[in-house]
Computed example of a mutant assay.
Amino acid sequence: MTAAARLAALDSLPADDLCQMAEVALAALVDIMNQETVLLRTGHIKQASTLTPDKTRLAQDYVGFARAVQRQGDRLRAEAPKAVDRLKQGHESLATQMAENLRVLATARTVTEDLLTDVAQIVGQQNKAKTYGRAGAVASDPASSARGIAVNRSM
């Protein structure tokens, strides 16, 4: 089926059916984002990352339905105003969940970066020579503190 045929099929659905399909996709997306947020909050980053493929698929599904709803907005408001109102409320719930999810992701990233930086500094301190310099103090080389450790900032 071509993309144009899929769009036409969505656009020709009865108003209640299209809204219901969008609501189901929206609820599933909010649910998986909530699961991810809970896992991240409790420090289960690896488990949270396993949700990414499903979250991506659900987000794509929802975006497809949301675009169909936008294209058919006038018709849907006329034929199924209550369903459109439910969708608006659901979308607000998604926005709230996304904001919380992004806050938790940012916190997890910061904590991870801080931990890796601390580990790099400790490893670097353990690897440097413990000799006295001219002034009678242990020489320090700040450039060697992160030798062998890299911080991936793409999280």
Rank of each mutant, 00 (worst) to 15 (best):
D16I: 08
A68P: 00
A9F: 05
D11N: 09
A25N: 03
D74N: 07
L18W: 04
K88I: 13
A22Q: 07
A120E: 01
A78Y: 03
R103D: 15
A150N: 09
L76G: 02
N101P: 01
D11R: 07
G124L: 08
D85F: 07
I149D: 01
T110L: 13
R86I: 06
A80I: 01
A48G: 12
A108S: 15
Q47W: 04
L39N: 02
R134L: 11
A106G: 10
A137L: 14
R109V: 06
M155R: 10
F65A: 01
A66P: 02
A66I: 01
K82F: 08
S144E: 09
D74E: 15
A80F: 01
S12V: 03
V123D: 10
R75S: 01
D11E: 09
V69H: 02
A48I: 04
A3F: 08
V138T: 12
A139L: 15
V24A: 11
L102D: 14
V63M: 09
P81Y: 04
N152S: 13
A135V: 07
V104N: 04
L13P: 04
Q89E: 12
D85W: 04
A135K: 10
E100S: 09
G136Q: 06
D54C: 05
K128I: 14
A129D: 12
Q126D: 10
G43W: 00
K55R: 14
N152D: 15
A59E: 11
T50F: 13
